[in-house]
């Protein structure tokens, strides 16, 4: 198992392809020279995401970015998936957490290659961290890379990692209005997994209401209702996962 600690002061330098050339012109009302840029601020991350995507495609690696609030059962869902499919699919895992090796140790116990990325004070994974992590995993072709993002339903939404699919997980112990409270994450995901459905008899969570809210944000979302604990509903998720492999 490897560990990569991210120090924000040591960013990887990436040469950025030029878009439209910036044109210079003088403004009479300013003492300085105004340079019109119109450049996307997120390019510090998105260029790396594009590079990751190229790496994934070249290795026929399907990359999935798992995002959720803390406590939705993201790691349990991942463990269950790996346990049930590891004889059929070759998996690699990147674990993102602010601190500790706990999650990576849980994956390591399944004999799946895993890298823990500790983001320190940072509340999300960025594309360059994934690049370093995936290089150290050196994955075999035609496998699946599961990237478990930092538990946070806000910040990871803005950071494309080059993944093929973003999967947002909510659980029945949360509010069913999560999708409209944190719309950006649902807007940028392709799949929504509703976890802990075994607890539905004991909680006020309304599955249809949650799906309606999520569809209001993103009408294209695909849903799976599962319990990672009992295994209920996991088969449909497995079928989807298998069908999307490169």
């Amino acid at each position: 198992m490897h560990k990569i600690s991210k120090n924000k002061g040591q960013k990887i330098t990436i040469s950025i392809p030029e878009g439209s050339p910036a044109h210079d012109h003088s403004h009479t009302d300013s003492t300085g020279r105004v340079i019109e840029l119109g450049k996307d601020i997120m390019q510090f991350n998105d260029v790396g995401a594009a590079r990751n995507r190229g790496y994934f495609d070249a290795r026929k690696l399907m990359a999935i970015n798992l995002v959720s609030s803390p406590g939705s059962g993201k790691t349990s869902l991942l463990e269950k998936t790996l346990h049930d499919l590891k004889d059929k699919i070759r998996f690699y895992v990147i674990e993102g957490d602010q601190q500790t090796l706990n999650d990576a140790n849980r994956i390591d116990a399944l004999n799946i290659p895993v890298v823990q990325v500790n983001t320190g004070t940072l509340c999300h994974l960025e594309s360059d961290m994934v690049y370093e992590a995936v290089k150290s995993l050196d994955p075999e072709p035609e496998s699946v890379l599961m990237i478990e993002n930092v538990g946070n339903l806000v910040c990871p939404a803005k950071f494309n990692l080059g993944e093929d699919f973003r999967v947002v997980i909510i659980s029945t112990t949360e509010g069913d209005d999560k999708p409209i409270k944190y719309p950006d994450m649902f807007d940028t995901s392709q799949v929504c997994i509703i976890n802990k459905i075994d607890l539905l008899p004991y909680v006020p969570f309304d599955v249809e209401k949650a799906k309606d809210y999520a569809r209001q944000v993103n009408p294209h979302l695909e849903f799976f209702e599962v319990s990672a604990t009992t295994g209920e509903g996991m088969e449909q998720w497995y079928q989807w996962l298998t069908s999307k492999m490169k």
């Binding site: 003492t31 300085g32 020279r33 340079i35 019109e36 119109g38 601020i41």
Partner: peptide, 21 residues
């Protein structure tokens, strides 16, 4: 209908910088 194209509002750009002449 909830299906829509976002035309404006997602911008996250540096429009310009001013440097000394």
């Amino acid at each position: 209908c909830y299906l829509k194209d976002i035309l404006q509002g997602k911008e996250l750009r540096i429009k310009s910088i001013t440097i000394p002449d």
